[in-house]
Amino acid sequence: MSRRWMITVTELVEQLDQPGADRPLVLDARYDLMGPDGAGAFAEGHVPGARWVDVEDGLSATGERARGGGGRHPLPRPEVFEQAVRRVGLDRGRPVVAMDGGHLLGAARLWWLLRDAGHDAVRVLDGGFAAWRDAGLPVETGPGTPPAPGDFVAGPPRLPVVDAEGVAGALAGGVQVVDVRAAPRYRGEQEPIDPVAGHVPGAVNLPSSRLLGEDGRLLPAGPLHEVVADVAPGAVLYCGSGLTASQAVLALAETGREDGVLYAGSWSDWISDPTRPVARGH
């Protein structure tokens, strides 16, 4: 079964041989949740011609540049995202291949934002830079040559997204809420990042690791269908700060389901208000 939103290294190599506007722009959204930004890793090696985009600045935003909501990675306002991808040379209508180091966090956020802005000509590189490197393909080093600004235009937001109040309303209305963090974090046994452990009361747990194979890549279509079979239509998906939840939305979309609702602020936003309830255990 062909994939809807993913692209293999072999397919990318073929597309990079296309002329002019048919040649995709490779945007590398490499990001390390527990480490420095991806600029250093990008400079050490990347797909030739790729351009780095910053998850922290452009794919998320704070203060007046944020779209609303809280958490560690709030969505950027449309004009902020538009400026971020224009800076790396994206023109309207040009196909994009979104990638990262291989775990799909930055790439999935970029994929979600492009689609939310009306740009469906985007695919995600399966396995990211790790797959490119493991295939023995040429690697470019350094920060890359600054490109000429692009003319990309972000349309009105169009993908389903909720804030904390929307999550509470979804639960009250019987809508499924899915926490995609690791099970110990969901149960409140471990919390390496946020100041409060636990989960949104009423949420069920589907660890995002189940969406991936042993090689760290998204599961093939058949097994992926089985893993997400219990995710109800229109379910709200959240994680720690919205990045892994974007990965889960991507996984659902790969199975043909475009109904995954992103709680962009996720757990880091939920616990920002001490009056919101917290559950622990199963």
Rank of each mutant, 00 (worst) to 15 (best):
L75C: 01
E165L: 07
G281A: 07
R115N: 13
R185I: 11
G63W: 05
P220V: 08
Q190W: 11
G58V: 08
T8V: 03
A130Q: 13
T62Y: 12
E44T: 06
W270C: 06
P146A: 11
P74W: 09
V178H: 07
E226Y: 01
S60A: 14
L104W: 12
S246G: 02
A170F: 01
G281M: 05
A197N: 12
D32E: 15
E79W: 12
W5K: 02
S272P: 10
D116M: 10
Q247C: 12
P156C: 05
P157K: 09
A197P: 07
I271W: 00
S266L: 05
L252H: 11
A131N: 10
V178Y: 02
D179H: 04
G128D: 02
A121F: 02
A121Q: 15
P138Y: 11
V80W: 00
F81C: 11
D91T: 11
G155R: 04
V177D: 05
G136D: 12
A50D: 04
Y31R: 00
Q176H: 04
L212I: 07
D163F: 00
G234C: 10
D32S: 15
R86F: 07
L110S: 10
D54V: 03
G234Y: 10
D134T: 05
A264E: 05
S272W: 01
G118L: 06
P78W: 09
G106I: 09
E79M: 02
D22L: 14
S209M: 13
A183T: 15
V153S: 13
G234E: 02
S2A: 15
P156F: 01
S60E: 04
P78E: 11
G68W: 06
A197E: 04
V85A: 09
V153N: 03
G38C: 06
F152E: 09
L237V: 04
L159Q: 14
V161D: 02
S272C: 07
L33H: 02
D151G: 12
S2W: 05
V200E: 01
